[in-house]
Amino acid sequence: MQDNTAWFDLDIYNTLSTFDTVFSKDKLHLLFIRKGVMYVNIDDKKLILTAISIFCFNGRENFAIQNKCNVEVTRLSFSPNVINSSFTVDNIHDIPSNFSKTDRLDCLCLQPFIHRTGQYIGQIEVGLKQIDKIDFLLKQIMDISENVYFLNKDFIYRSAILELLLIINQHSSKVLLCNNTMPNTDNSTGIEDVISYLHSFYSHNITIATITRNFNTNRTTLSKKFKEKLGVTPIDYLNRVRITKAALLLQESNMPINQIMIKVGFNNRNYFNKVFKKQTGLRPGEFRRNYRSIV
């Protein structure tokens, strides 16, 4: 019989600690990345996981952490039979013909852990207004898991996970613009260090001169390495990160566009509009009208 109990930890991991990379094959796994950058391999892909986001994967996928920079991560692993007693990782991946309509509907809430497309790789950018809610739910799950005598433990535990899954499913449909896959190579060129820097400090005033000075390189070498590995220049990559953050704020907040522009690192509205339209096909105001959530 499969274990109904979730495995949960609330440790904070950083570059000096050892992240437990043993992920059970019969569970679904969630990483809530609050800070920093992680480089992971999942099956044949190398991904950049950045804050603030959730990464969902399942035990059938081969997952390994390659590198991390100033990372704070909460990890939650749970059996799919928490949602439906008939579920296993295998049968929600390859749905059997004898599943009832209710079973199939229940499967939908677990799709972010299973379903992959060219655009969705398992990572979900989290809006600022959801961070406290996610923290609360993870803390609630931890408290329930640690308290053997918690009244109505199974019911409250399942409710907390369902609420967390609702947030994940709502965010998995957001329009995200930054492709976080990269060539599956080592960091001998130092590109990963630069990428981590850009993801961590995108809101700062960063120029090519800033990057070359911080990483003891020159403009030509830096641009060549980026073009070879990622197909774009360092500033193009930085702008892609910034526009992704801006797009999320436009979808999830009432923040004025000028304030969003400054928050993500731009200081010129015309340039911001130009870069935003180049990446999305829309001006910021048009994007907000088309894709905004109810806020």
Rank of each mutant, 00 (worst) to 15 (best):
residue 33 I to S: 00
residue 52 I to G: 00
residue 125 E to M: 12
residue 280 T to A: 04
residue 45 K to A: 04
residue 20 D to F: 00
residue 96 P to L: 06
residue 72 E to Y: 09
residue 289 R to M: 10
residue 65 I to H: 05
residue 69 C to F: 14
residue 112 P to Q: 01
residue 275 V to I: 13
residue 211 I to W: 03
residue 85 S to C: 05
residue 137 L to H: 06
residue 150 F to I: 02
residue 163 E to D: 14
residue 260 I to A: 07
residue 252 E to W: 07
residue 208 I to W: 00
residue 176 L to D: 08
residue 5 T to N: 12
residue 221 T to W: 05
residue 240 R to C: 11
residue 111 Q to G: 02
residue 148 V to N: 12
residue 84 N to M: 04
residue 290 N to I: 13
residue 287 F to Q: 02
residue 287 F to I: 04
residue 64 A to F: 12
residue 23 F to Y: 10
residue 26 D to E: 04
residue 261 M to H: 06
residue 54 I to A: 08
residue 126 V to Q: 03
residue 54 I to C: 08
residue 222 L to A: 10
residue 173 S to L: 14
residue 188 S to Y: 09
residue 165 L to D: 03
residue 17 S to Y: 06
residue 172 S to V: 10
residue 2 Q to E: 10
residue 156 I to S: 11
residue 62 N to F: 09
residue 130 Q to D: 15
residue 285 G to S: 12
residue 290 N to A: 15
residue 288 R to V: 02
residue 37 V to S: 05
residue 68 K to E: 02
residue 281 G to I: 04
residue 223 S to D: 14
residue 266 F to M: 08
residue 4 N to I: 07
residue 229 K to I: 14
residue 221 T to Y: 07
residue 179 N to K: 14
residue 126 V to E: 00
residue 50 T to G: 07
residue 92 I to Y: 01
residue 13 Y to R: 00
residue 132 D to C: 11
residue 62 N to R: 13
residue 188 S to P: 00
residue 76 L to V: 11
residue 177 L to G: 11
residue 82 V to I: 15
residue 51 A to T: 06
residue 147 N to C: 11
residue 144 I to V: 08
residue 190 G to P: 08
residue 52 I to F: 06
residue 30 L to S: 05
residue 103 D to S: 00
residue 209 A to T: 13
residue 124 I to M: 00
residue 142 M to K: 14
residue 34 R to I: 00
residue 247 A to C: 05
residue 235 I to R: 08
residue 92 I to E: 02
residue 202 Y to H: 12
residue 95 I to R: 03
residue 108 L to W: 05
residue 62 N to I: 11
residue 266 F to Q: 09
residue 271 Y to R: 10
residue 91 N to A: 01
residue 259 Q to S: 13
residue 208 I to H: 01
residue 154 D to F: 01
residue 191 I to C: 03
residue 146 E to N: 12
residue 168 I to E: 05
